[in-house]
Structure formats: structure tokens, C-alpha cells
Simulated scan of single mutants.
Amino acid sequence: MEALRQKIEDILAADTGCWGMVVTNHATGARLELNPEMVFPAASMIKVPIMYEIMRQTAAGKLSLDETLVVTSGYRTGGAGILKELRPDITMTVRELVTLMIIVSDNIATNMLIDLAGMDQVNRTMTGLGLKSTVLRRRMMDFDAARAGNENETSAADLARLFAHLLSSTGLPPAYGALMLDILKRQQIRDKLPYFLPEETVIAHKTGTLPGVEHDAGILFLPGGPYIISVLTGGLTANVQGLQLVANIGKTIYHHLCFREE
């Protein structure tokens, strides 16, 4: 992937901030890495490990995706999502909460699922999957905890590894891997990796945003097979810088893989 590496390095040369990136051909193992182990604030990327843990516990018979939970006023918080706009004490299934957590990055749904799965259990499972830098330390929108040093963290290498596990349904019955990919393919936040791609392009992905931070990672499905892409950015002077950077990287990767040989 040296030709692709040069194209991406040319894009990065005109940029400031910091970044970590992994692009992997899932079938052949061919891999491009730039600062893969650099640790970043996870932002909403941490929602993918939470989803995996919910599915793992469901497969083990500890949870049911059809179980219903009440969205009480105690869970109301700001940021992304739609549950904050709906009537108080609405009832949702676990499956619906997982879907909202991923496709619109709903923070209320996320905090409910953190309590359901258990923060420590999410971390133990991620460690067991070989993720070295991914840790869930706080709920969504708990900026006091973040300022106190309890920030959620991850790396491009960890996210690439986790998406490979999802694609292979590692440690889970295949139906659960397929369900997670189906939810990720319905992602409605498409302002980064898929921004410049043809509408029919299939990508199962999750984005993350914090002040000075823009991330996107997932699986790009192409006729030649799936590619796992993880792009994390930080130290941005303005978030639009990260949006444009990740979108241009997504376009460059797509055109290189579709129209050029590796």
C-alpha cells in the first residue's frame, strides 16, 4: 500500500494537529499504518465497544435485546441524540437503544447501556480482545470526569482490531456480528469518511467528535472485498479542519482502492 501511503502523507503534510490511521485489506492482511498506537480521546468511538459488550452478554444469555427499559429523567443529558427530544419516561428495547447509540450517537441511550453492561465489564472484554489502549472511564457528557483525568481513550490500531473482530464475529455467534454490522451500515452521521463517496457505497462505521477531535472508523465494502479503515485526529484548531481532513482521506482511499492496484 505504499502508493496509497504517499497520497495520504501528501494530504497530511498540509495539515496541523495529530493523527493516527490504519487501513487494512481484510482478505490479504495488507496494511497501511500511520501512528497506529497513538492514544486519543475516544469521543463517541467508545460506543462501538459498548455495543460489542451488550451483544456478548446477550449471546451469553445475561441480557435480552427485547428487554425494555424506561428512559427516566435521571438519564437526560445534552449532546447528540434524539431521546432528549422525546416525551419523559418513554420505553425502549435494548435493541432500540443500541441502534440509537450507533446511528445517531445518542448519549442518553449510551449512558443507559453503560449502566446495563457495566463499565468494568466493557473494559475487561476489550482487553480480552487484544485492545491495548481502549478504556471506558466515564459516561457521555461527563466533562467534569474528563477534566479530572478520567477520559475515555482509544487508538486507530485498537479500533481497526475491534472492527476486524466484528467482521469475523470473534467470540460471538455469527448472527450477532451480522447484527452489529447491519446497525453500523445504517449510520446517519456521514460527514467524514463517506462524505465524498458515491451514495451507493456500503460502509459500516462510527464517528466521534469532541472539541479539537474528529474520528471515523469502520469497514468499507468494495467489490474486491472489505477494507477496515480507522482515522483519528486531535489537536485541531477548529473541528472543521478535522472534518475536511477525514473526508479527503476517505475520498483518497476509495479512489485508490477502486481505480488503482495496491
Rank of each mutant, 00 (worst) to 15 (best):
G78T: 11
L131Q: 08
F163I: 10
R138V: 09
R147M: 10
I114K: 01
D115A: 12
R76P: 01
P88L: 13
I90F: 02
A109P: 02
V71F: 01
T125M: 07
K84N: 13
G74C: 07
A156S: 15
D120A: 15
V98T: 11
A145W: 00
L136N: 07
R76W: 10
V122N: 07
A164V: 04
L100I: 03
D158Y: 12
R139M: 12
L97N: 09
S73T: 10
G79E: 10
G79K: 02
R147E: 14
A80M: 08
G118A: 03
A156E: 14
M140P: 01
S105T: 05
V122H: 04
R161Y: 12
G78F: 04
N150L: 15
L97G: 12
D142W: 01
T134G: 13
G81Q: 08
T99I: 04
A164C: 09
I103F: 08
K84S: 14
G130R: 08
G81Y: 05
L83F: 10
T99Q: 13
M101D: 09
A164M: 12
M92D: 00
L131G: 13
L116F: 07
M101F: 02
A145Y: 02
E96H: 01
N150V: 12
N150I: 13
G130I: 14
T110K: 07
L162C: 13
R138E: 12
L162Y: 06
T72Q: 00
E151W: 01
M140G: 03
V135I: 12
G79M: 08
R124M: 11
M119F: 02
V94P: 00
T99Y: 14
I108Q: 04
N123G: 05
T110P: 09
N150G: 15
A157W: 03
V71N: 00
V122C: 14
S73Q: 08
G130H: 10
A164N: 09
R147F: 08
L162H: 10
T99L: 11
A160T: 06
L113K: 06
V98Y: 01
I114V: 15
T72L: 01
L86T: 04
T127M: 07
L129E: 11
T125D: 14
A156Y: 13
T127C: 06
T134Q: 11
I102Y: 04
L116M: 08
K132D: 13
G128H: 05
M140A: 13
R76C: 09
M141W: 01
M92C: 12
A109T: 05
I114T: 11
L113Q: 10
D144M: 05
G118L: 03
D120N: 11
L86W: 06
A109H: 04
V122T: 11
T77V: 12
I90C: 04
